[in-house]
Nucleic acid binder design. Structure first.
Length: 412
DNA sequence: TCTGGGGTCCTAGGACCC
DNA sequence: TCTGGGGTCCTAGGACCC
């Protein structure tokens, strides 16, 4: 029998903002952007929630519900910093810690009794350690599976601890609405409602075969979840360190829909460069490039292309993304959002000839140097990066014989 | 009300190979 | 010559999470 903790920070983004600006305390606060911006609520304070404001709600709606709320853009760097602090603290309590997102984590506390005492005592100590060292509140769920621990932390909010005793998992879940099960969203909830299933207990009573018939493999997982088991890919057994990313993406919604081909293409190029940069930071190479296009009426298409070999170079990703855009954008139709993603990530580049390898190595170093320039002077220096690429091409063309002899790293 | 950005996982059809 | 099945890759779309 395992002992799993799920630690979930309370109103994380808002709470971090309050640390830096205590005048926000006690007020309805919305993190996400200006109230008239195109965007959604990233986090709402408990006071703001009293007005019906919720995460993922359009900012304009939130503003209508509570015009005197304080709207802030937010500070992602600060959230990352605090997330790392929390991770450090968690690692003092267990060697098996897994950050599930920026503000929540699973701990395997099995066999830590001699060190930290029984589960409730350990949970209290952990809660107190986080509060003292970060000034932030969290809620903790304790149970024999990830699933039940996660639901328990949600039930414990705000600022509480809930331990579901081994053997009582199904009893704990039974009265809850099916939407409380992680992985059951609006669509599945609606489908279950149509079958007359409203509570987890209703679900648990059903025959597995019936669920599999209607929901496929997902139905089987659902049957397990209703009984408190870690079923399905969402909850793999071991709790451990994070795996490398499977995809990297950047997207942008325009303040106003755009039809200008040049502006749109420039955006595609910028997004592709940002993706390439992240790949270099991770030390990964991508084989597949995806373009995402959202039109004014919100219809959204994605188009992708898989290359012969993996790359992490701006030029390659920009070229592929731009081609996808030119091929698939319906000219003259206003665009709301553009996105570029990379997948099929691997550690090594595909096999190359020696000459290609040298050429690519020079490019890679030049681009890394450009990344450093951007770090120092900000994203506006991005033009410098592309200008350098142009310069490189010209020179290589004018005087190809000169390139290999000179120090390869100098051209950054 | 008018819908972000960054991810993961699943499904399903078609191509291609054995 | 016709028929088949399984496995894997690619592509597109969608549900879901924070």
């Amino acid at each position: 029998m395992r002992t799993i903790f799920h630690v979930d920070m309370d109103a994380f983004f808002v709470s971090v903002e309050e640390l830096f600006d205590p005048s926000l305390r006690g007020k309805p606060v919305v993190v996400g952007g200006r109230p008239d911006a195109r965007g959604v609520v990233a986090a709402a304070s408990y006071e703001a929630r009293k007005y019906g404001i919720r995460s993922a709600m359009p900012l304009r709606t939130a503003w209508r519900l509570c015009p005197h709320a304080v709207f802030v853009e937010g500070h992602p760097e600060r959230y990352r910093e605090y997330s790392e602090k929390i991770h450090e603290i968690l690692c003092e309590f267990s060697p098996k810690v897994e950050m599930a997102s920026i503000d929540e984590a699973y701990l395997d506390m099995t066999g830590t009794e001699r060190l930290f005492g029984p589960p409730m005592k350990a949970a209290h100590n952990l809660h107190e350690a986080i509060r003292q060292r970060t000034g932030l509140n969290c809620s903790i769920g304790v149970a024999s599976s990830r699933l039940v621990a996660k639901v328990a932390s949600d039930q414990a909010k705000p600022n509480g601890i809930l331990w579901v005793l081994p053997g009582l998992e199904a009893q704990f879940l039974a009265p809850l609405e099916v939407g409380k099960i992680p992985g059951v969203g609006k669509v599945t909830e609606q489908r279950l409602h149509e079958l007359g299933i409203r509570r987890v207990g209703d679900l648990a009573r059903l025959d597995e075969g019936f669920l599999e018939e209607r929901f496929g493999r997902w139905g089987l997982a659902l049957a397990g979840k209703a009984r408190g088991l870690d079923a399905g890919a969402w909850f793999d057994e071991e709790i451990g360190e994070e795996a490398p990313p499977k995809s990297v993406s950047h997207e942008h919604t325009f303040e106003q829909d755009l039809v200008d081909a040049q502006l749109l293409e420039a955006t595609v190029a910028r997004l592709a460069s940002m993706v390439a940069r992240r790949l270099r930071e991770y030390g990964l190479y991508a084989r597949t490039v995806h373009l995402k296009l959202r039109y004014r009426d919100f219809t959204t298409i994605t188009r992708s292309h898989t290359m012969d070999r993996a790359t992490q170079l701006d030029a390659d990703l920009v070229e592929e993304a731009r081609r996808l855009f030119r091929t698939h954008w319906k000219r003259g139709v206003p665009v709301r959002l553009l996105g570029v993603a990379a997948s099929g990530l691997q550690i090594q580049e595909g096999q190359l000839s020696l000459l290609d390898q040298e050429r690519r190595e020079r490019w890679r170093r030049a681009l890394e140097a450009a990344d450093r320039v951007r770090d120092r002077f900000g994203e506006s220096a991005i033009e410098l990066g592309s200008a350098m690429e142009g310069l490189y091409r010209e020179r290589a063309h004018e005087n190809p014989a000169r390139r290999p002899g000179r120090g390869a790293g100098k051209h950054g």
